Lab assay of single mutants.
Amino acid sequence: MSIQHFRVALIPFFAAFCLPVFAHPETLVKVKDAEDQLGARVGYIELDLNSGKILESFRPEERFPMMSTFKVLLCGAVLSRVDAGQEQLGRRIHYSQNDLVEYSPVTEKHLTDGMTVRELCSAAITMSDNTAANLLLTTIGGPKELTAFLHNMGDHVTRLDRWEPELNEAIPNDERDTTMPAAMATTLRKLLTGELLTLASRQQLIDWMEADKVAGPLLRSALPAGWFIADKSGAGERGSRGIIAALGPDGKPSRIVVIYTTGSQATMDERNRQIAEIGASLIKHW
């Protein structure tokens, strides 16, 4: 067993022997301040990774656009098919120029040779490549099948209805392509620590998230040296922004954090800054 596999296998073990965790309302004060600064709703939840206990939450059962955070769930569904012998990570998928959609920095470079399922998941999570996500959605049967996968996990809230990039439209009061912070946090925890996926697939999923290259201005910008984070960000229309993450000190994750916002007129930089400040408060009061 590799060191990384050992780390993920012992996530519940280490967490069980940690000192009790206590909620700190100071972080919620910052979440509410972010709402004021952005002029928009902000949803927040913080779960203990081992027990699933909610440590703090704000608007945990209000719907927010998922945006690209759905790509972690998508690759979880792909990995479940791999575990069941219905898919192979090494299978190569070929596609054409007509398949390319807006923001496809990886797939646009491989029109000639195609990409493997493993490479597509890596591109979808680490670079948020939209064509990679659409190609992977095709392998599982489309958005409705991802929703069905989530329902089978016990998540009857999260739903995907459309493809990239239309799913980022974020129309107010439109339930399409949305989740709730509580539902997303619980589902992410199941994917990373539950028995739904094999140990190898859980490790692969967290490795992809740990290698995320496009979430630097968010929670990662607030992390002290030595902290662990595996995350996936999302951005959408109407001032929408979000991030889902597993993080913790001492090089291992111990909490799940989900943050979503929508309806702001603020710039992307300002949305990023507010999420980073929430992260800084979380870490300060850990």
Results as ranks from 00 to 15, higher is better:
His24Gly: 12
His24Tyr: 08
His24Ala: 14
Val29Ile: 14
Lys30Gln: 11
Val31Glu: 01
Lys32Cys: 08
Asp33Ile: 11
Ala34Val: 12
Arg41Ser: 10
Arg41His: 15
Val42Tyr: 05
Leu49Val: 14
Asn50Val: 12
Glu61Leu: 12
Glu62His: 08
Pro65Val: 04
Met67Cys: 10
Thr69Cys: 06
Lys71Gln: 00
Lys71Cys: 00
Lys71Glu: 01
Val72Gly: 02
Val72Asn: 03
Val72His: 02
Leu73Val: 14
Leu74Arg: 00
Leu74Phe: 00
Cys75Ser: 06
Gly76Ser: 12
Val78Phe: 05
Leu79Tyr: 01
Leu79Ser: 03
Gly85Lys: 12
Gln86Ile: 14
Gly90Ile: 11
Arg92Gly: 06
Val101Asn: 08
Val106Asn: 07
Lys109Gly: 13
Thr112Cys: 09
Gly114Val: 01
Arg118Ile: 09
Arg118Leu: 13
Ser122Lys: 12
Ser122Val: 12
Thr126Asn: 07
Asp129Phe: 00
Thr131Val: 06
Ala133Gln: 01
Leu135Phe: 07
Thr138Phe: 11
Pro143Ser: 06
Lys144Val: 11
Leu146His: 01
Thr147Ile: 07
Asn152Ala: 14
Asn152Arg: 14
Met153Ile: 13
Met153Asp: 01
Met153Phe: 09
Asp155Asn: 05
Thr158Gly: 04
Arg159Ser: 09
Leu167Thr: 08
Glu169Ser: 12
Ile171Phe: 15
Pro172Gly: 09
Glu175Gln: 13
Met180Arg: 11
Met180Cys: 14
Pro181Tyr: 02
Ala182Gln: 14
Ala185Gly: 12
Thr186Val: 15
Leu188Met: 14
Lys190Ser: 15
Leu196Ile: 13
Gln203Met: 11
Trp208Thr: 02
Ala211Arg: 15
Val214Gly: 05
Gly216Arg: 08
Gly216Val: 06
Leu218Ile: 05
Ala222Trp: 07
Ala225Thr: 11
Lys232Trp: 00
Ala235Lys: 01
Gly242Glu: 00
Ile243Cys: 08
Ala245Leu: 03
Ala246Gly: 07
Leu247Thr: 07
Gly248Asn: 02
Pro249Ser: 09
Lys252Cys: 12
Pro253Ala: 13
Val258Asp: 03
Thr261His: 07
Ala266Tyr: 12
Thr267Pro: 13
Met268Glu: 07
Asp269Pro: 11
Asn272Lys: 03
Asn272Thr: 09
Ala276Tyr: 11
Ala280Leu: 14
Ile283Gln: 04
His285Ile: 01
His285Phe: 11
